[in-house]
């Protein structure tokens, strides 16, 4: 089980968290102007690196706040979480 550092509550078991996918995926500025292909690319296409990967987590069983954390997908090492608005 991963030990995930919640920026508010400290390190907690993975079972307390909900995964939110890749972080820093910006919502399109003008969604109506996108082609179907561009929209599908925004919705479904995510990076899949071997190594450092910024992702979103929600501490559902704790403070219920969203935060970003960088996880190394090869080793599962997690760098300290960062508070997001």
């Amino acid at each position: 089980m991963l030990l995930i550092p919640c920026p508010w509550c400290g390190p907690r078991d993975e079972a307390e968290f909900h995964y939110g996918g890749q972080a820093h995926v910006a919502y399109p500025e003008n969604p109506a102007a996108l082609s179907d292909e561009e929209w599908a690319r925004y919705l479904f296409f995510r990076d899949n690196p071997k190594g450092r990967f910024a992702e979103r987590w929600n501490h559902t069983a704790g403070c219920r706040r969203w935060f970003n954390a960088v996880r190394n997908t090869a080793t599962n090492e997690i760098e300290a979480g960062e508070v997001t608005a």
């Binding site: 509550c9 907690r12 078991d13 079972a15 307390e16 069983a61 704790g62 403070c63």
Partner: peptide
């Protein structure tokens, strides 16, 4: 105090 899981219950 803490919000956590006790025996799988929140």
């Amino acid at each position: 105090c803490a919000q956590t899981m006790l025996a799988r219950a929140q």
